[in-house]
């Protein structure tokens, strides 16, 4: 978990959004994906906080942010909410870093709010309609079903988290508690399922053209051992976006921030600095 002294909250679209503001320098907005929240950046923060002002959010329905399900948790709406957040914080220009569906949100932001964005880094991101990836149980069981089961059972959730790590032996009780924390309440579980239900490929299909015409620097980081998202996503993005960089981390799983935090931070820093 991130240090509570850096914790702030703001009301956006009538709901409380929790974010952390750490360090000094050019602003960097870090956006998590589904099944995680701000804590997923905890190991990366120490490598970046001395050079950047880090804005780390808990997306609505996640972490400590409001769990209300009467708001749309689509990628598009999350992108809108984050844009409102930047405006409220008077941040005019920002480097975007997104993980998992957070990468999708960042892609939408980069296309829709191009004037705000300095650069885009996506880590094990969703894109196009290549996701959800191979379901586990059968062809017709969508990933939502896995997530649904995971939301109800710590064992199933641990299974998902463990498969998402390269260094699986590093899954401590402490780390598992971080993942499980929002699932402890009925409201948390409901919000999580609502988020999963709201995921819609069409949000990303809409911006395919915009993505290919991006004028800002783009960095694509891929954990080679990510079992949840296929490597074709990263490869296709790299091919489609001219001038984009692709870094493949051989020792990275889906939750690569836990596997190789220093490496991720170095790639981001080098990418932005150049």
């Amino acid at each position: 978990m991130l240090n509570k002294k850096n914790r702030h909250s703001i009301i956006i679209q009538n709901h409380e959004l929790v974010y952390y503001r750490i360090g000094n320098g050019e602003p960097l907005l870090l956006v998590h994906g589904i099944t995680t929240y701000s804590f997923i950046w905890q190991k990366v923060v120490p490598f970046l906080e001395n050079r950047y002002e880090l804005i780390i959010v808990d997306l609505l329905g996640c972490g400590d942010s409001a769990k209300s399900i009467d708001v749309e948790f689509s990628l598009k709406n999350h992108a809108n909410i984050l844009a409102e957040l930047l405006e409220a914080l008077h941040i005019n220009k920002v480097h975007l870093v997104g993980h998992d569906v957070g990468g999708g949100i960042c892609q939408i932001m980069a296309v829709r709010f191009a004037e705000l964005i300095l650069s885009l880094t996506v880590i094990n991101t969703v894109a196009y309609d290549f996701w959800p990836v191979q379901p586990i149980i059968s062809m017709r069981t969508p990933i939502i079903r896995q997530l649904a089961m995971a939301s109800l059972d710590l064992g199933a959730f641990r299974f998902i988290v463990k498969r998402g790590l390269y260094y699986r032996e590093r899954l401590s009780n402490e780390l598992m508690n971080c993942f499980w924390y929002p699932m402890k309440t009925s409201a948390g579980r409901k919000a999580f399922l609502h988020f999963a239900h709201c995921l819609d490929n069409r949000d990303l299909i809409e911006i395919v053209d915009g993505i290919e015409q991006l004028q800002i620097p783009v960095l694509i980081i891929r954990g080679d051992k990510d079992v949840y998202l296929s490597k074709q996503i990263a490869e296709k993005l790299h091919q489609s976006i001219k001038g984009s960089q692709l870094k493949v981390v051989a020792t990275g799983g889906h939750f690569i921030q836990e596997d190789e935090p220093a490496m991720i931070a170095r790639y981001i820093d080098e990418f932005i600095t150049v």
Binding site: I137, S138, M139, R140, T141, R145, M149, L152, D153
Partner: peptide, 24 residues
């Protein structure tokens, strides 16, 4: 095969559900 597969996955699902309910 698809039907068989579906039926099997249904069974797995039911078992998981019952298992989850029992365990909790």
């Amino acid at each position: 095969l698809e039907e068989e597969n579906n039926s099997l996955s249904d069974q797995v699902e039911e078992m998981l559900l019952l298992n989850l309910i029992n365990e909790s």
